[in-house]
């Protein structure tokens, strides 16, 4: 009998680890990072590096103090830090960014039990706290350093504000793709973000359902609600960054495909609603956070029926 090993599932283990998945996410974020350096200058490196280091430090110190196993090696804290840095303008004071990191890692991730136990996306909550605490600094959108010599009509507003005012036309599409317009670090260059998203899909880190459903429904609902330019709206603001990197977090999204579809459409509907009828700043953040909160219910409603199973009476 001693040859019989009894253990709990999973019995089969693939080569894929959290660390490898997070490394893929980081690789996918590289094009956007490179774009942010080109567009906003060297401070982008400083902010991203400090933010990632602060997140790792927070997680390490917390686990040390609480005598928990050290999990900083799985790189998830690095991803949170980089995403958080991508959500601030390049002029953001460092200490304010670190406050956001502490909130994201300690309050949202570690207090609820570490990786896999957070009920909402840590980076997004960090952003919300920074947004409400340092509203001035968070909305002090910087304009590309390389564009400084070319003064044009739109240099005073972000594309989203211009869309709300109905001042944006197709001529602007190229700049939206390249990201040479005002905004926060990681959100401006749509092409780089899409490249990262394609990489993630090819590596099968994420399924394209959520980003496509999210972007598509934002487009459709934006058109229904009478946005002045629904297509350009999809390429502006934090939507690309949110749809590809934030709304695809494993822990805070539904598990089934149909659930993911509902999640994506819900995010799109909320984003279009907020962008049209409320303030455009933070629309993506709040949409994803709100949908994060209803994920348990979506999971319950879309739970697959086991093969041959009958409904409990």
């Amino acid at each position: 009998m001693s040859e019989l090993t009894v253990s709990v599932s999973p019995h089969l283990r693939g080569p894929r680890t959290t660390q490898k998945i997070m490394l893929d996410v980081l690789i996918a974020l590289c094009p956007a990072f490179a774009a942010s350096i080109i567009i906003f200058g060297w401070r982008s490196i400083l902010l991203t590096g400090v933010s990632a280091a602060a997140c790792v430090a927070c997680e390490y110190i917390w686990e040390r103090l609480m005598k928990q196993p050290i999990t900083v090696g799985d790189l998830s804290a690095v991803v949170t830090g980089v995403l958080l840095a991508f959500n601030v303008p390049s002029s953001m004071p460092l200490w304010e960014l670190i406050v956001g990191d502490i909130v994201a890692i300690i309050c949202v991730k570690m207090l609820f039990g570490g990786i896999g136990c957070n009920f909402v996306n840590p980076a997004l909550v960090g952003r919300v706290v920074m947004f409400f605490s340092f509203t001035g600094d968070m909305t002090n959108y910087q304009f590309p350093s390389m564009m400084a010599d070319k003064v044009d009509a739109l240099s005073s507003a972000t594309p989203l504000a211009a869309i709300r005012a109905g001042e944006l036309s197709w001529d602007y599409f190229g700049r939206l793709l390249l990201g040479t317009h005002g905004g926060v670090l990681g959100e401006t260059c749509a092409l780089a973000l899409i490249a990262g998203g394609v990489y993630l899909c090819v590596r099968r880190v994420i399924k394209p359902i959520i980003p496509l459903a999210y972007l598509g429904s934002t487009l459709v609902f934006g058109w229904i609600f009478g946005s002045s330019h629904p297509v350009l709206a999809v390429f502006s603001g934090g939507l690309m960054l949110g749809a590809i990197f934030m709304a695809t977090d494993y822990v805070t999204t539904p598990t089934t495909n149909i659930g993911k579809l509902i999640f994506g459409i819900g995010c799109g509907l909320l984003t279009a609603l907020m962008r049209t009828f409320a303030s455009s700043a933070g629309a993506v953040t709040f949409s994803i956070l709100l949908m994060n909160l209803v994920v348990p219910y979506i999971n319950d409603l879309t739970a697959p029926k086991p093969f041959g199973g009958v409904e409990a009476k």
Partner: peptide, 15 residues
């Protein structure tokens, strides 16, 4: 300039 404004708002209170 060194305040955590969210604390004076409702979410900070709940937190």
């Amino acid at each position: 300039g060194y305040q955590l404004g969210i604390l004076t708002q409702a979410p900070g209170g709940f937190f």
